[in-house]
């Protein structure tokens, strides 16, 4: 621990060596990440002369952005609402899981954290399709929820409509929670695992209760993990269109579904580009605000 590596001690072997090492990766990222983003920006300010004009011309046309809010305001706010709900659920389920595995699992720790990764090794789409089986109208899950009288509660909150679970907001939020839960557990686990257990002993010696030890020692030390986990679930969740397509029916389309439809079906590139960039801008500002709130300035 704390062993400081080379840069300070060893100045350089060859002056240009680092740039040689960097260039393939950096050129790749520039060509296939930065340049495409620039062409996306350019396209978002272009306009089509007619409905069948497939080569829109660049003319600083800002109207595409205005159209996003007027036409897709619902989908945009729904996406961020669903993603936020899923992130909170991931945190509520994932934090206790990471905590239990890190603090109480003993020699099963590595095995259990390995199990968290296992879902990644099966197809993401097939797992989502499995939820359509589990939530189908006469499935055990639905019958159990109905028997417990939970359906009425969910209906009152507006998370489901009628007598079904499939094709409801609840199904989409549940699917997103499911898909991104491991992304929440892993970073929290990493930050909890690093905590020096002697700190907990010290807190107990000073007569701190379990609750206040957690609040004043464990929680602050795990905040970087919470931050990373929230980003890793919120960002992909807000741009996702698979869960909405499989579990949400026609009434719960998210902004990802709109981009996909605009770009690949309607071939409306300026519109799709404007939505994509707006999504990215909103996410970036949300991340910055969140970093300020949690006080974690460093990314990743």
């Amino acid at each position: 621990m704390g062993r400081r590596g080379g840069p300070q001690r060893r100045p350089s072997r060859g002056r240009w060596t680092p740039f040689g090492l960097l260039s393939p990766g950096v050129i790749w990222l520039t060509l296939f990440f930065l340049v495409p983003l620039a062409s996306l920006a350019r396209m978002s300010l272009s306009s089509k002369q007619s409905r069948f004009d497939f080569e829109p011309s660049f003319n600083w046309d800002w109207s595409n952005y205005g159209d996003v809010f007027s036409e897709y305001g619902t989908q945009l706010s729904r996406s961020f609402g669903f993603a936020a709900a899923a992130t909170v659920l991931c945190l509520l389920i994932g934090y206790p899981m990471a905590y239990w595995v890190a603090m109480h699992a003993g020699r099963w720790r590595n095995l259990l954290i390995g199990l968290v990764v296992v879902p990644f090794l099966t197809s993401f789409l097939l797992r989502t399709i499995s939820w359509t089986v589990l939530l189908a109208d006469s499935s055990m899950v639905v019958r159990a929820v109905r028997a417990m009288g939970l359906l009425r509660v969910l209906r009152a909150v507006g998370l489901v409509e009628g007598d079904r679970l499939l094709d409801t907001p609840l199904a989409v939020i549940g699917g997103l929670t499911y898909n991104f839960l491991p992304f929440m557990i892993l970073p929290i686990y990493v930050s909890l695992e690093k905590i020096d257990l002697r700190l907990l002993d010290a807190a107990a010696d000073l007569y701190a209760s379990t609750g206040s030890t957690f609040r004043r020692v464990v929680l602050p030390l795990s905040l970087p993990g919470v931050f990373a986990g929230s980003l890793l679930s919120f960002i992909p969740a807000s741009g996702d269109f698979v869960n909405a397509a499989f579990l949400g029916g026609t009434g719960n389309r998210m902004i990802g579904n709109v981009v996909q439809d605009r770009f690949l079906v309607q071939l409306d590139y300026p519109g799709a580009a404007a939505i994509s960039l707006l999504l990215m801008a909103i996410i970036t500002s949300a991340v910055l605000v969140y970093a300020k709130l949690l006080g974690t300035e460093e990314l990743a």
């Binding site: 100045p11 680092p18 960097l22 950096v26 990440f33 930065l34 495409p36 960002i235 741009g239 990743a300």
Partner: peptide
């Protein structure tokens, strides 16, 4: 990790960005 040079911080940002960009943006831009 091994070398100190100008622009290292910038390269770090460039590395993180693709992972914090929604896939739909990466896909449509490419």
């Amino acid at each position: 990790v091994r070398y100190r040079f100008r622009g290292g911080a910038l390269v770090n940002v460039l590395l993180v960005l693709p992972l914090t960009t929604p896939e739909i943006v990466l896909g449509s831009s490419l």
